[in-house]
Simulated assay, not measured.
Amino acid sequence: MALAPGFYDLPPGTLATVVTHLEMRAPAVPRPAPLPDGVTLRRVRSPGTDWYRDLYTRVGADWLWFSRLRMQRAELTAILTDPGVEIWVLEKDGRAEGLLELDFRQEGDCELAFFGLTGTLIGSGAGRFLMNQAIARAWARPITRFHVHTCTLDSPAALGFYRRSGFTPTGQQIEIATDPRLTGDLPRDAGAHIPLYED
């Protein structure tokens, strides 16, 4: 459904975000970036849901990532153990501090399902290194499209970073969801830059 121009009221307890869809149809030329000192890249096969949600939350809580926190354990386990899904992490001092999730479950496509760093690695160049890995590993399989979506709840740098990485915007949508700070999915002080709108 297309919305007409104008303002729309949101019910209390909800969030609205603009979602931008992007894709690349051929491997982008990598922008050189070394792996930061003391950081390693590792694939995690069939991660446990508690481990995954801990990393997901440390990467995304400031941006109100919540979708994987609302999933039933069995549903999330099915995704994380699917052979069409790859989980890669950047580790520093033995702890995962960067998340790369590639989803090949749709034939011919790869979705950059989740991508991000904790505050430990932001600004270190690790994001560019991880994106180079994402592009190389996505196109190592027989795909014709590598795609991602980001939204206005994500880091303000995300959209520009994806475009510089070779993704091209293909469309936008408005998403309305229950605020995860009111459901217990995230603490009430998460995403402090986004007003908590209650009745």
Score class of each variant (00 low, 15 high):
Phe129Met: 07
Leu159Lys: 08
Gln133Met: 14
Ala136Leu: 11
His149Ile: 01
Leu153His: 13
Gly127Asp: 04
Ala126Met: 07
Arg128Met: 05
Ile135Arg: 08
Phe167Thr: 00
His149Tyr: 15
Ile143Gln: 11
Leu159Pro: 03
Phe167Val: 02
Ala138Asp: 06
Phe161Met: 04
Arg164Thr: 12
Trp139Thr: 10
Phe167Met: 14
His147Asp: 07
Cys151Asn: 14
Arg163Lys: 15
Gly160Gln: 01
Gly160Asn: 05
Asp154Gly: 03
Phe129Thr: 05
Leu121Ser: 09
Pro169Glu: 14
Ile135Glu: 01
Arg141Gly: 10
Thr150Asp: 03
Leu153Arg: 09
Val148Asn: 06
Ile143Met: 12
Arg141Pro: 10
Arg163Trp: 01
Ile143Ser: 11
Phe146Leu: 13
Ala157Cys: 02
Pro169Val: 08
Tyr162Met: 04
Gly123Ile: 12
His147Val: 03
Tyr162Pro: 01
Ile122Tyr: 03
Ala157Pro: 02
Tyr162His: 07
Cys151Trp: 03
Gly166Cys: 08
Asp154Tyr: 06
Thr152Gly: 04
Phe161His: 02
Ala158Thr: 02
Val148Met: 05
Phe146Tyr: 11
Ala134His: 01
Tyr162Phe: 15
Pro169Asn: 05
Ala158Lys: 03
Gln133Thr: 13
Asp154Lys: 02
Ala136Arg: 15
Cys151Thr: 02
Ala126His: 01
Asn132Ala: 11
Arg164Trp: 05
Ser165Arg: 03
His149Lys: 11
Pro169Ala: 08
Ile143Pro: 04
Arg164Val: 06
Phe167Ile: 08
Leu121Cys: 09
Cys151Asp: 15
Leu121Ile: 09
Arg145Pro: 02
Asn132Arg: 11
Ile122Asn: 07
Gly160Leu: 08
Arg164Asn: 12
Gly160His: 06
Gly125Asn: 11
Val148Arg: 01
Phe167Gln: 00
Ser165Gly: 15
Arg128Pro: 01
Ala138Glu: 05
Ala158Val: 03
Gly160Val: 01
Asp154Met: 08
Arg145Ile: 06
Leu130Ser: 00
Thr152Glu: 08
Ala140Cys: 08
Phe161Ile: 00
Ser165Ala: 15
Arg145Ala: 11
Trp139Glu: 07
Ile143Tyr: 06
Phe167His: 03
Leu121Thr: 12
Ser165Trp: 00
Pro156Ile: 07
Ile122Val: 15
Arg137Pro: 09
